[in-house]
Structures are given as structure tokens and as C-alpha cells.
């Protein structure tokens, strides 16, 4: 038996999961899925920024389009540090496709217009 706090939504249900992966305490099916994943192969969505040129700001916020294995968070950060993106950027533009073979793309989360040069 293991106790967890669900991080799927701000409600923060207090979950219990037993050795045969039966989940109690969840208010919705997402909590059940979270407790199973957290017990067998924990994953997280990674949010960070990458270098940006040609826009009004020097950093572009990005996220992994799907959760990636928790133990790969550090490696994903290392991949992001090698990337430079040039404006203009649209929300959802792929910055790194299939990062580290996880199947998740790293995508832009902010629209950045090209800065007009005078």
C-alpha cells in the first residue's frame, strides 16, 4: 500500500494504491491513471525555455507535448540548452521532434512575432 497526492489537477486528491494496483481516494479516472503510472513508471511534462533570436524577448517558453519519464528530465533540459529558435514562432511549433526517443515533441508555448527592424 502506498499513499500519493494526485498532481493531475489542483484538487490534489489523497490516493492510495495497493500492490495489485487498485486505486482508492481518486475523484476521477485521471487520478487512477496517475496513481498507476506513478507507481510503475513516473512521468512528467517538462516546461522550460530555449534561446530565442529575432524576437522582442531572448527566451522562448516550451514544453514536452506529452509526459516524459521522470528520470529523463535532466537529459531533456540538456537537449534544450543546445537549441536556438528564430522568431517568428507560433504556439505549437515543434522545437525538437521526438526528444530523446520518448515520442514526445518539444513545442513552443508562446507566440513571438518577428521584431521589425528599423
Amino acid at each position: 500500500m502506498r499513499e500519493l497526492v494526485c498532481i493531475v489537477c489542483p484538487r490534489g486528491c489523497h490516493l492510495k494504491i495497493d500492490d495489485s494496483l487498485n486505486v482508492t481516494g481518486n475523484a476521477c479516472p485521471r487520478g487512477e491513471a496517475y496513481a498507476r503510472a506513478e507507481t510503475t513508471h513516473p512521468t512528467r511534462v517538462v516546461t522550460s525555455t530555449v534561446r530565442l533570436v529575432g524576437g522582442q524577448i531572448p527566451r522562448l517558453p516550451v514544453k514536452t507535448g506529452a509526459p516524459v519519464p521522470k528520470e529523463l528530465i535532466g537529459s531533456v533540459m540538456a537537449e534544450l540548452s543546445r537549441v536556438t529558435v528564430t522568431a517568428p514562432v507560433k504556439v505549437g511549433d515543434v522545437v525538437i521532434s521526438d526528444v530523446l526517443g520518448t515520442g514526445a515533441d518539444v513545442v513552443a508555448t508562446r507566440e513571438i512575432p518577428e521584431t521589425v527592424k528599423i
Partner: peptide
Amino acid sequence: LNQCIHNGFGLTYFKEELTGPEYAH
């Protein structure tokens, strides 16, 4: 929202998990 680049926004309003800049967008 532009500096809150983490996710977790919009779960009750949009029923999906967005980052701050995406919610603003």
C-alpha cells in the same frame, strides 16, 4: 501568465492542462 511557463492552467475552464503563455494565447 507570460512568465508562468509551467503547466497546470486551464484544467477547470478548458478541461485541459495548459502552460501560462498558452492560457493567455
